[in-house]
Computed example of a mutant assay.
Amino acid sequence: MGIKLLTERLLIRDFEANDCDCVHSYASNPLVTEHMIWGPNTLNETMEFIQRTINMQKRSPRVAFELALILRTDGKLIGGVGFHVSDLQGEVGYCIHPDYWRQGYASEAAAEMLRFGFQEVGLHRIYATCRPENIGSANVMKKIGMTYEGHLREHMFHKGKWHDSLQYSILEHEFNG
């Protein structure tokens, strides 16, 4: 049985093989991937991503969730949210098609991932990171109640250079969902 979560405006579900074209419409966009550690994707890379997400769904116990964000009004796939578990902690991330930026969808999806992580998976702590230039993502983390933990300096090497990250987290007893 796959994951299906409902928020006010979104159905959050497991990715399916036929989602590839919709995912590729944002995963291949340099504007979307500017602050990501991946992309912009080739079509083959997007197809491989979809296959990896389908393989994740088969693992038991499940520790990785890459989920599609579907508008409840018209069924359009507008992005994805990821959730990865290790040692009663989870890391959440999100990616939205730019046509849907600044409309609260990332916050809505990430808040549901906090609820899912704490109430259904039984986590103690959930964290997220973003590049310091990605103010929109940092604002999402603040909006959903995460606390700024610090600035990780040049801690990862991607796309030919070292990158900093800002880290935010929330503990189970701090969550009000």
Rank of each mutant, 00 (worst) to 15 (best):
H151V: 11
H84V: 14
A17P: 12
N18H: 12
Q51I: 08
W162N: 08
D164F: 00
Q103S: 11
L166Q: 02
L11G: 11
L88M: 12
F157R: 13
A110C: 08
T7F: 05
M146C: 02
G117E: 01
A64T: 12
E149V: 06
G93L: 04
P132A: 02
S165L: 13
G79E: 00
R9Q: 15
I12C: 09
I70W: 02
I170Y: 00
L152N: 02
M156A: 15
P61G: 07
I96M: 10
E133L: 06
G75M: 14
L152C: 04
A111W: 05
Q167K: 08
E154R: 11
E112S: 09
L71P: 03
I70S: 04
I96E: 01
A68Q: 04
S25M: 02
A110F: 01
C20F: 07
R115D: 15
L123K: 02
I37R: 09
Y105M: 07
F83A: 04
T73Q: 14
Q89S: 15
E154M: 07
N55M: 10
D87A: 15
L123S: 04
L6V: 11
C130H: 01
Y26I: 03
I54Q: 12
L11S: 14
H173V: 13
I78V: 11
G79M: 02
E91Y: 09
L77F: 03
Q89G: 06
E154C: 09
R115I: 13
G93K: 00
I50S: 01
K4C: 07
E133D: 12
Y105W: 05
I54P: 06
H155D: 08
L43S: 08
N44C: 07
L114F: 04
E112Q: 14
L6M: 10
M56T: 05
C130F: 02
V23N: 02
G2Q: 12
D21Y: 12
L123T: 03
C130V: 07
D87K: 09
M113D: 00
Q119S: 12
Y100P: 04
E133T: 09
M47H: 05
N139H: 13
V23R: 02
W38K: 07
G150R: 00
I3N: 07
L31N: 13
